[in-house]
Nucleic acid binder design. Structure first.
Lengths: 353, 353
DNA sequence: GATATTTCTAGAAACGATTCCAGAAATTCC
DNA sequence: GGAATTTCTGGAATCGTTTCTAGAAATATC
């Protein structure tokens, strides 16, 4: 009947099934399967017949049917808050590369900062029976996420997030040390009024960066001007607005630290509109790199983390857990890189408004 | 027997199947299916029973089994040359968003500039029975690609590529006009020696950009110095090397045009190492934007194309073809944006070496 | 109330693979 | 050569859906 089907099929390339191979080779379907899956109970004659038929028909096993039977889809879901963030894109890229090596494919879902979309993404992945999920959540506090994770049935690796009540592996950057080094550097350069603009404290990333920031002040016996800390969300708009406010107030900071590529872009934009030159009127350190930070003028000092390593490690960790290992936490180091934006001598304070 | 299975199952959340729902509701499996898929031949009483059982068990249909039956996987493959290119990341993002709206998921595969990986990607997608593919090929000339496409059985949309002997939809940017405008602008600023550094002519993108470049010279009755045209590949390394060579030769160009984000980054790097200031020692126009081109100093003039639109259109076009429409070609406009890097007056020619 | 018509439901086949089980064929041994 | 053992092969069940078919139940018609 597979044959009959084929006759009124109009697609250019009829797909050969295992049954076709079996018929062509004159053997049973089960024998074909055994040959192809390398089962030991196969005679040389049988192997030869089947392999010839397979080649002749250009047969390729249907992953869907295999998944149906085995319960494994060899598919991993990757949920990211925003793929247009180049750092995350790099993470996704190296993760995909690593997964491919192990015979897995990656379904990419970008939540674009929307929690409802994020929940839907988890639901879709669950229905697709993915073997595992790697995710970077928008917020750890959202109740939608909690229930998404509760209903999950596949192993999970979280990127830079901390959630209670659910077992997961995690890959986290050591944001504390990099940020502390950066702020220490600024303090050493004589800065005392250091603005810090970044996203929500509802994610580990922000809380750790904040710890690093405070640690540096504490180590130097300095007190913090809480008004200089602006936590909100990771959009350019938020950072632009806050930077604008900070630098058009009476007590203008002498340096600014931005957390995340969106915040960095927003802050640069605001400083530009205020006509404040980075490195000359205000020292600047960015947390998280853009690919061209080292060549733009002035070159931006930054806290760097290896996106490729993060992607690779998250893939490896997930597969480990899928094979039954106990979920563990991997920490990736961050490195403060000194460039021009924080080392030039500032020119005498500009008169604002 | 599904019941027996459940007993020695140790996963935390046993997955309810349609059979479980049917048993719980006391009806036949087919009736459950009919209720859930909105078939008209369903009594109110039946609907109620099934819906209650569904809710009680938290039942969700298995997409795998549905695919098996229907032949549709509701999955689209997206093959990209390099996802860490922010422009491509944006394309992928908006494409995924559009596909999700239509109930499709996206499998992302980055070829990372490697043709063998690219072929493997096509093979994997074929075996996964994706319903369609959107791809940006590394080269139109490679024989591996030709045979990959030949063996394809799903509809295809190509991004910025032109291939013969295979039917596909395409989304292409109008590179000619944007590039022509850019070069015209440079010529109007008095430039005659305009270097052009970009990738291989084995892709439509490069050939069209070259056409635009030549068109502008022709329109102004100027002849081209072929030595200023450097086509190779899209890596930063290539562009850096070529830019370095161009600007350390006796006949230094006064302006440079770069095609693609990699080329732009490489050229900036080279100019920096030669201590040539963009906008002051050399005019600069980039084709394809980085997200921060407008705020770095000097702001870079560029040829812009709407990545979101490209992603969205490619998704729509593919679905159209999947529904039986004849493949067509969509063209997205490009726009030349004048910024500082090409408008500042150049300072007197620097003495090199 | 018997027949014709309509509405609803259950059973079974199918999608394409894997794997268990039983039995056939080949080999060994006496 | 016949029995016991080993090696190999084919049939059938299974995964979780959808959909076809046939028949039961309900309603309408006379």
């Amino acid at each position: 009947m597979a044959k009959r089907k084929r006759e009124d099929d109009v697609t250019p390339l009829p797909v050969a099934t295992m049954e076709d191979v079996a018929r062509k080779a004159g053997v049973a379907i089960s024998s074909v399967s055994r040959v192809l899956s390398g089962h030991p109970d196969v005679s040389a004659r049988m192997a030869k017949k089947v392999e010839e038929a397979t080649r002749a028909l250009g047969y390729e096993p249907d992953i869907l049917a295999q998944s149906m039977r085995s319960g494994e889809t060899r598919t991993i879901g990757f949920i990211i808050t925003d793929i247009s963030n180049p750092l995350f894109a790099q993470v996704a890229q190296s993760c995909e590369q690593e997964l491919r090596k192990m015979g897995y494919s990656m379904i990419l879902m970008s939540s674009n900062g929307d929690e409802i979309t994020e929940s839907e993404n988890f639901a879709v992945l669950r229905r697709r029976r993915v073997d595992g999920i790697i995710a970077s959540l928008i917020s750890e506090k959202s109740s939608a996420v909690k229930s998404s994770l509760q209903n999950l049935r596949s192993p999970l690796v979280l990127l830079d997030r901390q959630i209670s009540g659910y077992e997961y592996g995690s890959v986290t950057a050591n944001h504390i040390s990099g940020t502390r080094d950066a702020v220490n550097h600024l303090i050493n350069q004589g800065h005392r009024e250091i603005a810090f603009v970044t996203g929500t404290p509802d994610v580990l990333t922000t809380r750790e960066r904040l710890k690093g920031y405070k640690k540096a002040f504490a180590e130097n016996g300095l007190s913090i001007n809480e008004n200089h800390i602006r936590l909100g969300n990771f959009t350019e708009e938020f950072a632009e607005r806050q930077t604008y406010l900070l630098f058009s107030s009476p007590t203008v900071p002498t340096a600014i630290l931005t957390g995340g590529v969106g915040a960095t872009a927003g802050a640069i934009r605001a400083l530009r509109s205020l006509n404040l030159a980075i490195g000359h009127d205000v020292a600047f350190v960015a947390i998280d790199e853009w690919p061209m930070f080292d060549v733009i003028l002035p070159a931006l000092s930054s806290v760097y983390r290896d996106a490729e390593m993060i992607g690779r490690e998250s893939a490896r960790l997930l597969l480990e857990i899928m094979r039954g290992a106990k979920p563990r936490k991997t920490v990736i180091e961050t490195h403060f890189i000194i460039r021009e934006s924080s080392t030039n001598k500032l020119r005498s304070k500009k008169k604002l408004n």
